[in-house]
């Protein structure tokens, strides 16, 4: 046998590996209550209630309509939220104020779920600045915004951190007034490495096209909410095989085993048009 021919054949044999969708038999757990509740400085409270579903069911939230939700501040002012449909409950009177502690209580099927969240003082955004987006060949990290023909930009916020306390932040991005909620859009951080400094923060994976209006909302949140969103973001990125920590449920600030969070926050926003 002419081994040289054999080698040439072996050299050109395709070498492959792959991703494939597989059938899995997963346990079905009994439904759990999921609460997403927000109270912004100067605004009234909003809560969204749903239930968990089996993993392979279609994604269609099961809304909870008949819960009793009450919000109260540390001085005893309180209000019951009204149901508006699609699992959403809203307040009308009690507005978030800086340096106040808020308690949200949800009563559902005879059980009570309680969370506390502190509304911290606002930290203003000094300015926004843009940088050229990193564009890998093929556009893998570009948030589904099409090819690399247009020079796209990322937007960063600069602000002065408060030196006297440990601050926790969440940064929301809006494109043309629509909140970006795609994978990887949860952006929470703290000032552990930057206490008292002029900080620059932003999401490198969210890129904008010329003509886009980009709005950044810098939220000051409390420690337990920061823990919730950082663990949530960790779980959501766990599809990446290089990030294979043992999965767990994000650390909720609700008592009694409810999933989700209650976030009281102050915020400042700035908008920029991408050139």
């Amino acid at each position: 046998m002419n081994y040289k021919i054999l080698i040439i054949v072996l050299l050109f044999l395709p070498l492959w590996g792959c991703e494939e969708v597989i059938e899995m038999d997963l346990n079905s757990a009994s439904s759990k209550l999921v609460i997403e509740a927000n109270l912004a400085e100067g605004k009234t409270a909003m809560a969204k209630l749903s239930l968990t579903s089996n993993y392979f069911d279609p994604i269609a939230p099961v809304f909870v309509e008949n819960a009793i939700i009450t919000i109260a501040d540390k001085n005893g002012a309180n209000e019951q939220l009204t149901y508006k449909g699609n699992g959403i409950y809203e307040g009308t009177l009690l507005k978030g104020a800086e340096n106040n502690m808020y308690t949200l209580e949800v009563e559902y099927k005879g059980e009570k779920f309680i969370a506390n969240s502190f509304l911290h003082k606002k930290i203003p955004i000094d300015s926004l600045r843009t940088e050229a987006a990193f564009t890998p060949p093929g556009g893998g990290f570009n948030n589904g915004n099409g090819g690399g023909a247009v020079a796209r930009k990322i937007v960063l916020a600069m602000f002065q951190d408060n030196i006297t306390e440990t601050n926790f932040y969440k940064l929301n991005y809006y494109r043309n007034d629509t909140l970006i909620t795609s994978a990887g859009s949860i952006n929470v951080f703290d000032d552990a490495l930057s206490n008292g400094l002029l900080m620059t923060a932003g999401a490198r994976q969210i890129a904008f096209k010329p003509g886009d209006a980009s709005k950044l909302e810098l939220m000051v949140i409390d420690k337990s909410v920061h823990l919730y969103f950082s663990t949530l973001s960790n779980i959501l990125s766990s599809g990446n095989p290089m990030n294979s920590s043992t999965p767990y449920n994000p650390e909720s600030n609700f008592s009694n085993g409810a999933l989700g969070y209650f976030m009281a926050y102050s915020f400042d926003s700035k908008e920029i048009e991408i050139k």
């Binding site: 757990a29 999921v34 779980i235």
Partner: peptide
Amino acid sequence: SGKYTIGEQVVSY
């Protein structure tokens, strides 16, 4: 063993 939605993202339970 289940899933839910937070801010339009699907989260495993």
